[in-house]
Simulated assay, not measured.
Amino acid sequence: MNFRKTLVTTTALASFAMVGAAAAADYTIGITQNNVGVDSYQTTYEKAFIAAAEANDKVDAVVLDAGGDVARQIAQMEDLIQQNVDAIIIWPTNGQAVIPAVRKAHNAGIPVIVTNSNIAEEGFDFVRSFSGPDNVTQGARSAEIMCDKFKEMGIENEAQVVQISGQPGYTTAIERAGGFEDRLPEVCPNVTLVETQPGDWNREKSQQVMEAFLVKYDDIDGVYSGDDNMGVGALNAAKAADRAGDIIFVGATNFAVGYEAMGRGEYWGSIYQSPVDDAEAALQTAIDVLDGKDIPFLNYFDTPKITQDNMSEFDKPVF
């Protein structure tokens, strides 16, 4: 089977790839992603999505990237609606701001599948299914990992923690932070979360945030980061200040850099999440919706705990 991938410019001022079989496909599915270039998770997700679409004779896929720009993503949604695609997958740049565009697609009779990070709850009526991780559970599991380590160390009644969250307004960031903040006092009621600052999913910014924490607080026992990319930024700051050995680092979405730091004994734990599983699940959810299958609204895939103790059970992440 021959496949084609053609880069063109859209009226949304972003490039897209048209991926599909040479013969007519059953469905045309459009996807507008958050920001492919911002980290290796999103880059790997896009590659996996394109590969899955190329391997499926039923699908032509229009693959778009919003570049982190809400206005661009809304314009891309408008383009996909005008193209009358059969379904739209959206990885929201902002869970609140995209709701009018999602509603417009719904009103046009185009089913919308949200991937990876859900939109705000008031937009749920316009979405057929969410495909991705349970980010609240991820945050809660990270709190459990940290609390268990504090108990092992005997500091569960005195430990102080700082948090580096993701991009403000981004649903994943909100949910992971909320899951952590709600669960930590349940499992370790005497641990204190002293401050939270955003790292915007960026390693360099997170390193700067951690540098400021280290100046402000003489006693930091744990750092929770909304993903390992930010967590390694925090680790780098602590290493530069010669304080890394005194701090337990826990993240989410186990990046390769986090896995490697765990192997060196510098980073304690995270949540294992595959961008390949994420991408393939989103495409399959869209196909299942179009095939008329009964799909749950919250279509989660599992994201287990990973620490230095059990990391040998997991393959090194590919991102």
Rank of each mutant, 00 (worst) to 15 (best):
A256I: 14
D182A: 15
V127W: 13
V38Y: 00
T93A: 08
G258H: 05
T307C: 04
D65I: 03
N190A: 08
I145K: 02
L214K: 07
A244N: 04
E181Y: 03
D227F: 15
G178S: 08
T10H: 09
I119K: 07
I88H: 12
Y272F: 15
G139T: 05
E313N: 03
K58T: 11
V127S: 13
K5Q: 12
I145L: 10
D227T: 14
Y170H: 15
F150K: 02
T44G: 07
A61C: 11
P304I: 14
L214D: 09
A256H: 12
P111C: 13
F319C: 05
S117G: 12
A212M: 07
M18E: 15
D309E: 05
V70W: 02
P92V: 10
D200Y: 13
V215T: 14
A53Y: 09
D79I: 07
A261Y: 05
L64Y: 15
N190Q: 13
I88Q: 12
Q33G: 09
E260C: 07
P168T: 01
P100L: 13
L7C: 00
S142W: 07
A25W: 04
G245Y: 04
V223F: 10
T253A: 14
Y267T: 10
E46Y: 05
V223L: 13
L214H: 08
A21K: 03
D227H: 15
Y45V: 04
I88G: 12
A261P: 08
V276M: 02
I220T: 04
V127R: 14
Q96G: 00
N35A: 09
V136Y: 09
V85A: 05
N2Q: 06
A48W: 01
E266T: 11
N254Q: 14
G265C: 04
S274R: 04
I271V: 07
N107G: 05
F180V: 01
Y224D: 01
A21D: 04
S131Y: 09
G132W: 10
P304V: 14
